[in-house]
C-alpha cells in the first residue's frame, strides 16, 4: 500500500479551502497550517500564465525528517504516511530543518505537527479533509498500488511533476500539469 495525492493545477483556483478545511478538521491552531497555497505568475501583461499549487507534506518515500529525528517520533506508518508521535517528540526542530518543503511546523504545544493525510479519516474509508472539501475537486487521493484508485488513474492519463525530486526525497504529492 502506498498512499499518494495528485493535484490538478489546471483546475485549482487557489481558493485555500483546503487550508481552512484542514485547520478545522484537524484542530490546527489559528496562525498555523498543515497545507498552503502557492501562486506563481510568469510573463508580461498580456502574455501571462499562472500556476497554482496546494502544497503540504509530500509524504516522502525517502524522508529526511524521519531519518534525522533523534527520538523516533517521526516515523513512517501504514501506506507510507509520515507521522509524528506527539509524546515522543522533544521539539528539537531537526525535522523542520530537514524538510526541503518547509512542510512541518512547531505546534504551540511544543511538538512538531504536519499533514497526516488525515489518517484518522482514511482509516474510516473517508478522503482526507482537504480532498473532500476542495470545491474544484482538483485533488485525487488513494493507494498507488491499487490501479483503480483515483490517484493511480489520474497519474496514468495525465502529465505530472513532483516538487524538487532532485532533493532525493521521493515525494508522493503529484502535480498534474
Amino acid at each position: 500500500m502506498r498512499y499518494a495525492m495528485a493535484i490538478d493545477t489546471k483546475k485549482c483556483v487557489g481558493c485555500s479551502d483546503c487550508v481552512v478545511a484542514c485547520q478545522t478538521e484537524n484542530d490546527v491552531p489559528i496562525g498555523y497550517c498543515r497545507d498552503w497555497v502557492v501562486e506563481v505568475t510568469n510573463g508580461t501583461y498580456p502574455q501571462l500564465e499562472i500556476e497554482i499549487r496546494s502544497e503540504r507534506c509530500n509524504q516522502c518515500s525517502n524522508a529526511p525528517c524521519v531519518r534525522c529525528c533523534p527520538t523516533g517520533a517521526s516515523h513512517i506508518a501504514d501506506g507510507g504516511i509520515v507521522l509524528v508521535t506527539e509524546n515522543k517528540c522533544i521539539g528539537c526542530g531537526a525535522c523542520i530543518n530537514s524538510c526541503p518543503y518547509d512542510a512541518r511546523y512547531s505546534h504551540p504545544d511544543g511538538y512538531v505537527d504536519k499533514c497526516t493525510f488525515c489518517i484518522q479519516r482514511i482509516r474510516k474509508g473517508l478522503e482526507p479533509a482537504c480532498v473532500a472539501t476542495c470545491p474544484t475537486k482538483c485533488m485525487y487521493f488513494g493507494d498507488l498500488d491499487d490501479p483503480n484508485s483515483p490517484v493511480s488513474k489520474m497519474l496514468k492519463i495525465r502529465k505530472y511533476t513532483t516538487l524538487i525530486p532532485e532533493a532525493g526525497t521521493e515525494p508522493q504529492l503529484y502535480f498534474l500539469m
Binding site: S16, V19, C33, V37, E39, V40, T41
Partner: peptide, 14 residues
C-alpha cells in the same frame, strides 16, 4: 516578471 506568492497558510513565524 516572475511573481511567486504564498496565497495563504504559512503565517507561521518559525
Amino acid at each position: 516578471m516572475r511573481e511567486e506568492i504564498i496565497v495563504s497558510g504559512r503565517a507561521n513565524p518559525y
